[in-house]
Write a protein that binds this DNA or RNA. Structure first.
Lengths: 278, 278
DNA sequence: GTGCTGCTATGTCAAATGACAGGGTTGGTT
DNA sequence: AACCAACCCTGTCATTTGACATAGCAGCAC
């Protein structure tokens, strides 16, 4: 292994490090707010989503008053930088994002991906620093809330508070699954598990209706998610393609036999009830 | 690697598998309830803990009425089995536990450790199956709550609801850190990071006052936490001892220079405010 | 004592994974 | 066209890590 124990050799191409630093700069996202005064929640794109449990009308009205506006980010832009305490919290309205954590020496671990309906910034809401960065993987639109008013939500809307806890607990469960991957599965199993995870979330959130998730994930990102080197990621991906287990290109993921892929990756089929959202 | 890609070779000593199966049987924990009618919360052992934020008196009274009793488990006993939906939720009053997740073929991943003040069973509270098992690493005493009444807590006590979300978010942050370990750190860094994590939690919860955590962790458990083989865990542990970075025996963990260990493991020193508890 | 069990330690070899170096493709820009 | 930036791919070799086999040692029951 080249990460020699403690001398912190460069570890990533300078190009990558460079781009990371650039991203760090346009972190603020300050001026870009687009308040969507018009039809806030009545036209919420999440209302059509099969996989989401819709809030009752009165709660929806409350959210409409609570929410602040919309915001858009382009693919590659950073929504949160690590170790900041931002002003806004978000719900994903459309698009996919990822959260990642950076080590001082440049190594980066992608923690998880966020799909429509997911809530962003819970750690920030609780007066803590963000332990990770959040970056858009596609063009995204986010529903924004003001952090300071977060406690109003908890105090006034036990239903939403419950939902928020629900989301946090299920996010935790997803991280557990990723931990199992990194700790116990070998490279091919990990990659299969990740593919199944992504496609399943795509199906559940309605953005991969026919079982094909259109999402551009570079092999470098896969490597950073799975804790593998870029080269080994490439080879493993090719191996899975050769077997016919997954059909994963730069821009889309397709799994011919998802049950077979689950079995291969040793994923126990826990069925999730439909997710709430805020 | 011996985990050859998909043939699921035995992978663990038969003795270990055997003991796991045994543990699976005494899972119910049904009849062992010890209702502590006397002085429930006034004498709460957590009240003395420096690292915990104490609830205000009225909330404490509410908890006293909400809580159900005490329960004790001996080292090695299982509190929750995986994929069950238990009747009780717990707060750790004393002792240390671990949560782990089992794969069908016997591989096991330890997810995290739980110290006094931690809340157990949030997933269960939200009507989901437990995705993991919970096992006592020492003799423990737990404060029990009835799962069905969980929504009362959310509805009636926004403060506690907030605290619960706080705990969930910070548990998530801990899992993120473990993910970074498994994904980006090599064996020695992982082990140092784990040692620092455990000792720090021990200090914060007052059970390692002099910086020495008395807790018996076998090398097999370390291996299952860090995603390493038992043999490699042994060798790595010896290497760390040789360097003088950690002094980790079967029954205790001591870190001569915790700052050095942090630097070695590349842990960024995020300072946590004091944790709430319920 | 003898056996047994759980844990730690070591030696040897094999497999998984990473490092390094280089080439190829695509797409955008000037 | 020439250049450049991302990204994907391949070959070769080094390192990390795992598998297997075995031994030692403490505790404990009988």
């Amino acid at each position: 292994m080249g990460r020699d124990d403690n001398d912190s050799s460069p570890q990533m191409g300078t190009a990558l490090v460079h781009s990371m630093l650039e991203q760090r700069q346009d972190q603020a996202a300050g001026g870009r707010l687009v308040v969507n005064g018009g039809q806030p929640c009545r036209a919420c794109p999440l209302a059509d989503c099969e996989g989401l449990r819709q809030p009752p009308p009165d709660v929806r009205d409350w959210i409409a008053a609570f929410r602040h506006g919309d915001m858009r980010f382009a693919r590659g832009e950073q929504v949160y930088a690590q170790a900041t305490r931002p002003r806004f919290l978000y719900t994903v309205l459309s698009g996919v994002l990822m959260r990642s954590r950076l080590l001082e020496d440049g190594r980066r671990q992608i923690i998880n991906f966020m799909f429509p309906g997911d809530f962003i910034g819970l750690q920030a809401a609780l007066d803590a620093e963000m332990g990770h960065a959040v970056e858009a993987m596609t063009n995204v639109t986010l529903c924004t809330f003001v952090r300071e008013r977060f406690f109003d939500l908890v105090a006034q809307q036990p239903r939403l508070s419950f939902d928020l806890t629900w989301l946090a607990a299920h996010e935790e469960a997803a991280l557990e699954e990723h931990l199992v991957s990194l700790g116990q599965r070998n490279a091919r199993e990990r990659m299969a598990a990740l593919a199944v995870f992504l496609v399943q979330r795509g199906i559940d959130t309605g953005i991969a209706p026919d079982g094909v998730l259109t999402l551009t994930v570079t092999q470098g990102q896969i490597a950073e998610m799975l804790g593998l080197s870029l080269v080994h990621t490439n080879r493993t991906l090719q191996a899975l393609r050769r077997i016919g287990l997954v059909d994963w290109t730069l821009t889309s993921i397709r799994i011919p036999d998802i049950a077979a892929a689950r079995a291969f990756a040793k994923i126990d089929g826990s069925v999730f009830s439909s997710r709430p959202y805020i």
